[in-house]
Design a protein around this nucleic acid. Structure first.
Length: 420
DNA sequence: TATTGGGCTAACT
DNA sequence: AGTTAGCCCAATA
């Protein structure tokens, strides 16, 4: 067995840690075991930050993580709201408001001030954020303003909700792993061009990776343009070719595809290494590969024509749209929820100056229904086994990386549905 | 505050 | 029109 090279370790970490359905315990064990790449992929870097944020969503450390996340390319729009909510909560909930608000929002060097003011990170800079920073700055030494700001921003749950919304959006947009991209090139939709450019010796390797059935499919598509002009393409030749193809197909239908079994074996090895059993079966892994990126992963080829694939892809759409559902319902526009409901917006300065009491009028908007993934269902089953069917909160907090955006009531409702 | 059962609604068949 | 999954609400302990 060859030694694991740093490049291999990087591929594995990129693929597994970057997969949102990989449980925290498994991701952490892998991160502890394998050398962390000196030049990690963006996906790996992002997923490590997201996992850190998920385990500690509202704290000074979380503010650091948010600022790091904002500096990565194309952060989710929700990051501005999450960053502002965490910073404002830290100031509003501090025992010493003046000290905390000053350290965070005072010009020019407050931690949050530097991030949201001109020259800060573009993902965090906005007039709204600056307005809030101004309010906190101005409230230093002003007891009345402080009490107003405490009412507006002092709720940990609200700040955490903003962070959770960000996590959902970020995980949904994390994109395919390097392995998935490579697999897509070799066996996915882009395979024909890759194979066309490859020499015979390289194609032989591709055949091993793709499996014979898929390899024949790709090669047949590759040969199509030339076979049309083949001078010996006669009806007799076609007859023989068809006979060959069908006998070949018979042969292959009798031989089991080794890939799913290999995946299952790999999962077992992984599970055995975890303190906590992580027995995701091969089918689950397939689902995850499809749901963590729009590109067909290496395993997609084993499931071609499977009807459920469509369901998985549509749930991916749900996931995305949910990721952009913001519950910051302070819009003064009575029709604001119609067309731009997916565009995050921060509380306007104007809105922030009214009494917190008026917030009571705001009715929370219904969350968009998001289909439960098979990983969530499986985790719920195990949770009920472990904690019983009336400890939803326990199940939830022991699986924060799986139940992203779910509440204890959601778990209860899902269980009720599963028991029907 | 967590759990619970009834009720609502969008998305299906 | 009927069914279902996911979510919300309000009562309860």
């Amino acid at each position: 067995m060859p030694r694991l090279t740093p490049a291999d370790a990087s591929l594995i970490l990129d693929h597994v840690v970057g997969d949102p359905s990989t449980p925290a315990a498994a991701a952490n064990a892998l991160l502890a075991e394998l050398p962390f790449p000196s030049r990690p992929t963006r996906r790996l870097l992002r997923s490590v930050l997201l996992r850190r944020l998920g385990s500690d969503p509202v704290s000074p450390a979380a503010l650091d993580t948010l600022q790091l996340l904002a500096s990565l390319p194309t952060p989710a729009p929700a990051i501005a709201a999450a960053h502002l909510a965490v910073a404002a909560f830290l100031a509003a909930s501090a025992p010493d408001f003046d000290a905390a608000a000053g350290a965070l929002f005072a010009r020019p060097d407050g931690r949050a001030r530097r991030a949201v003011d001109e020259g800060g990170d573009p993902a965090l800079v906005s007039p709204e954020a600056v307005a809030v920073a101004d309010q906190f700055e101005a409230a230093v030494g002003n007891a009345f303003s402080q009490s107003v700001l405490r009412g507006l921003w002092g709720g940990r749950a609200a700040a955490e909700e903003r962070v959770r919304e960000l996590l959902v959006a970020e995980w949904a947009a994390i994109g395919p792993s390097q392995l998935e991209v490579a697999a897509e090139r070799i066996v996915g939709d882009g395979a024909v061009e890759t194979w066309r450019a490859a020499e015979e010796s390289i194609r032989a390797k591709y055949r091993m990776l793709a499996g014979e059935e898929r390899a024949r499919e790709i090669l047949s598509r590759l040969e199509e343009p030339t076979s049309n002009v083949n001078p010996i393409s006669t009806p007799e030749v076609h007859k023989v070719l068809d006979a060959l193809k069908s006998s070949c197909a018979d042969l292959h239908s009798a031989v089991e595809d080794p890939l799913p079994a290999a995946k299952a074996a790999a999962d077992e090895v992984l599970a055995a290494r975890m303190d906590k059993a992580v027995d995701i079966n091969a089918e689950e892994v397939n689902n995850q590969a499809a749901s963590c990126s729009a590109a067909a992963g290496p395993s997609a080829l084993n499931n071609q024509g499977e009807a459920s694939r469509k369901g998985t892809l549509s749930s991916l759409m749900d996931w995305n749209s949910t990721a952009r559902t913001f519950q910051w319902e302070d819009s003064l526009d009575p029709e604001g929820s119609r067309s731009q409901s997916h565009i995050p917006h921060l509380p306007s300065p104007r809105r922030n100056q009214v009494s917190p009491l008026q917030l009571a009028d705001n009715k929370a908007k219904r969350r968009r229904a998001r289909k439960w993934s098979s990983v969530e269902e499986e985790t719920l089953r195990k949770g009920v086994d472990q904690f019983g069917s009336s400890n939803w909160k326990d199940i939830l907090i022991h699986n924060p990386d799986v139940f992203i955006g779910r509440t204890a009531v959601d778990l209860k409702d899902k269980w009720r549905n599963m028991m029907r």
